[in-house]
C-alpha cells in the first residue's frame, strides 16, 4: 500500500544553512506518527516544505503516491493534506462559524460562489455544526475568534484543518501555549481524530508525544536522526544525548 505521505531526498537550503538535509521519510496510512527534535532541528521548515509554504531546493514530496512537489498550498489542501500552525493562524474578526464555513465551502466547491448569500446551503451548515460539536465549539460558533479563550482557539485551529477533510493532517505543536486546565480537552480531541486520517504530530511536549504516537521520528540539524516505536526511541542513548544537550554529532 502506498504511504499517505512520503518525501524522497528532501533538501532545503537558506543561503549556506541546510535547514532540511536529505530527508527521506514515510507516513503510513492511518499513522499516529510524531516528529520530535531539539529547537532549531528544522521541524517547522519540514512542515512548510510538506505543505507548500516553502519550495524545496531538491527532492520530491508524494501525497498518496502522487507527486505534489510543485503544487501550491491550496492545491495540496484540496488533495487532502492539511495542517495546523504552531502559532494560531486564525481570522480574529470572523467567527468560528465563518472560519469553519470557509473550509467546508471550499472543499465542497462553493468557495468561489459570488452570487449566493453565505449560509444558504444546508449541507455546509450541517457540516459546520457537526465539526463544531466534535471540537467542543458549538457554544462558541457565533463569538468573534479574537475573543475566544486560547484553548478554544487551539481547538479551532484543529477544527479548521479537519474541516478540509484531510487524508493527512499535520499538527504543528497543537498544545503550545495552552494552559494546563485546557490541555486535557485538547489532547483528548487529538486522540479522538478518526483513524482514516493519517496524523503527523510535531511536538515538544514528551508526555503528549508518548501518549499519542505509535511511531516517532527524530530530526536533528535538518536530518532524520532516528526512527522507531516509542519504546525504542525512549531507550535510544543517542536520542537521549541529543535531548540532554550532550550531543557529539556534527
Amino acid at each position: 500500500m502506498t504511504d499517505a505521505l512520503a518525501t524522497i531526498g528532501l533538501v532545503r537550503r537558506f543561503g549556506g544553512l541546510v535547514a532540511t538535509n536529505d530527508v527521506t521519510f514515510a507516513l503510513a496510512r492511518g499513522a499516529r506518527h510524531a516528529l520530535i527534535g531539539p529547537n532549531g532541528a528544522g521541524k517547522t521548515t519540514f512542515v512548510n516544505l510538506l505543505t507548500g509554504v516553502l519550495a524545496p531546493t531538491a527532492g520530491r514530496i508524494l501525497l498518496a503516491g502522487e507527486d505534489v512537489t510543485g503544487l501550491p498550498q491550496d492545491a495540496r489542501v484540496r488533495r487532502g493534506l492539511s495542517r495546523t500552525f504552531q502559532i494560531n493562524q486564525l481570522f480574529p474578526d470572523l467567527t468560528p462559524l465563518e472560519t469553519i464555513g470557509l473550509a467546508v465551502s471550499e472543499r465542497l466547491g462553493h468557495g468561489g460562489d459570488v452570487w449566493r448569500v453565505v449560509g444558504t446551503r444546508d449541507a455546509v451548515l450541517e457540516e459546520i455544526v457537526s465539526i463544531a460539536s466534535r471540537f467542543g465549539l458549538i457554544d462558541a460558533l457565533e463569538t468573534r475568534v479574537g475573543g475566544l479563550p486560547y484553548g478554544k482557539q487551539r481547538q479551532l485551529e484543529i477544527a479548521v484543518a479537519f474541516a478540509t477533510r484531510p487524508r493527512v493532517l499535520l499538527l504543528d505543536e497543537p498544545a503550545a501555549g495552552v494552559p494546563e486546565r485546557e490541555r486535557r480537552a485538547l489532547i483528548e480531541t487529538i486522540a479522538a481524530l478518526p483513524r482514516d486520517v493519517s496524523v503527523l504530530l510535531i511536538e515538544h511536549d514528551m508526555d503528549i508525544v508518548f501518549s499519542f504516537a505509535e511511531r516517532i521520528s527524530v530530526l536533528v540539524d535538518g536530518a532524520l536522526f532516528a526512527e522507531g516505536a516509542p519504546d525504542e526511541i525512549a531507550r535510544d542513548a543517542r536520542v537521549k544525548a541529543v535531548y540532554l544537550g550532550g550531543a557529539t554529532h556534527g
Binding site: T51, D74, A75, V77, R83, Q89, F91, L102, E106, T164
Partner: peptide, 9 residues
C-alpha cells in the same frame, strides 16, 4: 497564509 491553508486559491 491561513486562507491558503484552508484550500482557498
Amino acid at each position: 497564509l491561513r486562507a491558503a491553508a484552508l484550500g482557498i486559491a
